[in-house]
């Protein structure tokens, strides 16, 4: 069997979370003899230590500044064809998910996205979040090749075994594939600096979601935060899109990752994109009026209440102490 792993690119280098894909590949392979290839989608990214140097490496001869999803997916499909890949897996990030599904069209494969669990008993089953995270979808794999994106954080990072002397610090085999000049685009990268460090320094972060209803209602959340000495207020993407909080306060996969001692999610549903940013929090508490809200699946404590009744009562109680 053959598995092709696609390295994710972040800040011009290989995203360290790519190492999670080797664990996912091991789960897919189980006891079947498997060749694993690592594909690096651009030839001008820094290669850092967190990837497996013991696997065959293929580098696409495309500069990240000439990125073109269509050209790249065709190039990867032709490689998949040459090595007879059964599984092509990448991380479910904005970078990789842009071109990954297209490989399935070029390579005539199934395309399964946002996979968070892989089961390999008698059958191989990919499990993904669906129905706004309220249900899991189990997909049984047949003989057709599969292109899959794996949600970051779903698998532990693969750690190379020191006793395995096939591992060294050089790339074993580099194959350069070039994509057609016509398919190159001229890309610029824009970086905005986020100088706001309040979310990095706080002991407790109060997260607020769409359920707050309006910018004016945020006073309630600020008053709640004021109870705690080292606190900060953060929001879901929706709250930032609406301009109720600046984007520098957005938590999640396209926002900040936070690691406070306590995170209190107020009227936040707990989408996988939001949860991706709060995995570092030691204790997660959710206040939500919907007892089925997915946020409770990853919380340590749950309060099923309307924030507009609960938080004022909490403030009253603290005042009286």
């Amino acid at each position: 069997m053959c598995i092709l792993i696609i390295a994710d690119i972040k800040n011009n280098q290989i995203n360290p979370a790519t190492a999670e894909l080797f664990t996912a590949a091991n789960t897919i392979a189980k006891d079947i003899i498997t060749t694993v290839y690592l594909l690096i989608p651009c030839n001008d990214v820094k290669i850092t230590s967190n990837y497996r140097p013991d696997v065959k490496t293929i580098v696409i001869g495309m500069s990240i500044y000439n990125y073109n999803a269509q050209g790249l997916s065709k190039a990867i499909a032709s490689i998949a064809h040459d090595i007879k890949a059964h599984y092509i897996i990448g991380l479910h990030t904005p970078f990789t998910i842009d071109f990954l599904p297209s490989i399935s069209i070029e390579y005539n494969a199934h395309c399964i996205t946002q996979v968070h669990t892989i089961q390999h008993d008698e059958h191989l089953t990919f499990v993904r979040g669906s129905c706004s995270g309220k249900l899991d979808q189990y997909i049984d794999i047949d003989n057709k090749p599969v292109v899959a994106s794996i949600a970051p954080g779903s698998f532990d990072e693969y750690v190379a075994d020191d006793t395995d002397n096939s591992i060294n610090d050089t790339i074993n085999e580099v194959t350069q594939i070039t994509i057609a000049a016509a398919e190159k685009q001229l890309c610029t990268f824009i970086t905005k600096e986020n100088k706001d460090s309040s979310l990095d320094e706080a002991d407790i972060i109060i997260g607020v979601g769409k359920g707050i209803g309006s910018k004016d209602n945020l006073t309630l959340i600020y008053n709640f935060a004021k109870i705690f000495p080292h606190s900060a207020v953060a929001g879901s993407r929706i709250v930032c899109d609406y301009g109720w909080l600046p984007y520098s306060k957005q938590v999640g996969i396209t926002g900040k990752s936070i690691a406070p001692r306590v995170y209190i999610a107020c009227a936040i549903s707990g989408s996988s994109q939001h949860i991706a940013g709060i995995k570092g929090a030691k204790t997660i508490i959710a206040i939500n009026k919907d007892n089925d809200a997915p946020i409770f699946n990853i919380s340590h404590y749950g309060v099923v209440e309307d924030i507009f009744t609960f938080i004022p009562q909490f403030l009253e109680y603290v005042k009286r102490l």
């Binding site: 199934h110 669906s130 309220k134 899991d136 979808q137 049984d140 409770f296 699946n297 340590h300 749950g302």
Partner: peptide
């Protein structure tokens, strides 16, 4: 023709949420 078999379940919790 590209069809696969799938079914749905309630997600497993990664933490044991203690409801107050």
């Amino acid at each position: 023709q590209v069809q696969y078999h799938s079914f749905y379940t309630i997600p497993q919790k990664t933490t044991e949420c203690e409801f107050i």
